[in-house]
Each structure stands twice: as C-alpha cells, then as structure tokens.
Design a protein around this nucleic acid. Structure first.
Length: 280
DNA sequence: TGCCAGGTCCGAG
DNA sequence: CTCGGACATGGC
C-alpha cells in the first residue's frame, strides 16, 4: 500500500467521465482499475489517495503518470479562462478532472469500438475481449483479466471478435492487430511524431478516423493540441459558440487558433459539461 | 418500440 | 470534396 497527496484531483469526475473503460466502483466508493500489467485500487481520502495493487513495483510512478499529476491544472485552467471568458462555466464543471494517460494499444482498440457506440456498450465489449484473451491476475481474492497484448490477439478472427459483441467493428479490430504486429503501425514511434503526423499514422488503420485518432493521441500520448470533436462538442458549439460553424473541420480550425496548446482541455471541458448536463 | 450511442466507410453527385 | 446511408448491438 502507498499513500500519495491527493492534490486537486476529483477522482470520481476523472474516472467516470468516459475516458477509461476498464474500472469498477467498489462498495467503499474506491475505484479498481485494470491498467496495463496490473490491477490497482485507488481510494480517495480527505487529503490523500490510498493505492493498493497486486504489483507494487514502481506503483507510485505509474499512478503519478496515470493521473497526470505532473501537470499544473490550476495553471491550465487560469490560462484557458484568460484566453476566453466564456470557458468559465465549462472549466468550473470540470474542476479536478484529469486527463488520464493510458496504454496505446488498449486505447487503439477501445476507441475503434467506440464508433457509434455507447459508453456501456464499449465497456462491455472491451471487457469481453480482455476476459477471453487477456492474462489473468489475482487481486483481493478476485480474478481480473488484463487487456491482451497484440500477440495475444494475433490469431483472433473477425468472427471471434464478433462473438464478443463488437458488431461491425470486428473487421477493424482485426486490421488494427495485424498492422500493429506487422509493424505497419509503430505505436512506440508515434510518441516521437508531431501530432499531425501521428494522426495520419493512426488513421492508416481501417476504422480509425479523425475523431478516434484524436482520442488515442489525447489519452495515450499526452497531447494537448489534438482533441476529439464528437457529438457532445458539436452540441456545445451549437449552443454557446455561435460564431463557429458546428462541423468538425471548422471546430478544429477555430479551437487550434484560439486555444493553441490548451485546446485539448478546452474541448474536454466542453464535452464533460454537455455530457453531465444530459445525464441530469 | 424506435431512437441513438465519444464515427467511419463507401459510393454518388 | 462534400453529403447521406449503412453498419451491429443494446440501453433507455
């Protein structure tokens, strides 16, 4: 067990805003997250986070990275507000929200599945894939399945994926696995690419368009200059940013020009605000 | 019951 | 290049 200062994170907001799919809420309101090579439980206390895992090697480092604790969100938020006062209400709806840093391969497959799907549907499919093909680990007397590696999925057919209720996206998953294994897509190399080239690299995979590629870059590659423009963001633009045409291309252009290297946060706050508003 | 979900692909104009 | 329909599945 380790304890780290909680800082300004709102754990619930961060975990439940739709950016991570493989987690469970425990009876004590802590979160159990399956991250890469291990299972981690995070419990929020008044001033700290209590972390346990089946594998405590480098655990603190992994948590700091996962929860994006190396960034100063207060500074980011102040900067955004200065750039555009209208962002105030969106920022305030997302205080304590951190953009998680997650594994590239898992994000690639998860967001392929996300296309025209609901968060619940995505969670089901991703968990089914892990349950069937991922390595099993034990934690707190329970068995969990890690997300499979590319090799563990190398022989999975379109039909196999379809059995796990991924629908028409099955062929896209097969294509993604194939291109990762054959190194047609180098997930490691993408780290060193500028964002526009990284987007193009990811979009070589069938089923990965601009929006999905942006999600992957935002969540697995720590970019703050790319951002997904989805249905919720379009709704926000339509409602509150009437000078922008509510179509993806125009929103991207405007956002980059106005918010620059803070674009990702601005868009994520808009997304979160609108999605929360709809939930009520 | 029918609509829609953190879209993308494909073919037509 | 832009636009509309198809696409699997399940929750509400």
């Amino acid at each position: 067990m380790i304890t780290i200062p909680k800082k300004d994170i709102n754990l619930k907001e961060t975990i439940e805003c739709g950016q991570i799919f493989r987690y469970e809420v425990e009876p004590d309101e802590s979160y159990t997250i399956i991250l890469n090579d291990r299972v981690i439980n995070i419990k929020e206390e008044k001033e700290s986070l209590i972390i346990t895992s089946n594998n405590e090697k480098d655990l603190e480092k992994k948590i700091i990275n996962l929860l994006d604790f190396n960034k100063d969100y207060d500074k980011i938020n102040k900067k955004l507000f200065k750039l555009d006062k209208r962002l105030g209400k969106y920022i305030n709806a997302s205080i304590g929200l951190k953009l998680l840093n997650q594994p590239p391969f898992e994000m690639l497959l998860s967001y392929i599945i996300s296309a025209n799907n609901s968060v619940k549907g995505i969670q089901k499919a991703v968990n089914a894939i892990a349950g069937k093909y991922g390595t099993k680990v034990n934690f707190n007397n329970k068995q969990y399945s890690l997300f499979p590696t590319p090799n563990e999925l190398s022989n999975v057919t379109e039909e196999n994926f379809r059995e796990l209720r991924v629908g028409f996206r099955a062929k896209y998953l097969v294509d993604a696995v194939k291109k990762v294994i054959s190194n047609q897509i180098d997930l490691e190399h993408i780290k060193s690419l500028p964002s526009d080239m990284a987007l193009n690299e990811l979009m070589q995979v069938n089923g990965v368009g601009s929006k999905v590629a942006s999600c992957i870059l935002m969540l697995a590659y720590d970019r703050s200059d790319v951002f997904p423009v989805d249905t919720w963001v379009i709704k926000t633009i339509t409602a509150d940013f009437k000078e922008i045409k509510p179509i993806q291309k125009e929103v991207i252009k405007y956002t980059k020009e106005k918010y620059g290297n803070y674009s990702t946060y601005a868009i994520q706050y808009m997304f979160n605000y609108k999605r929360k508003e709809a939930k009520k």
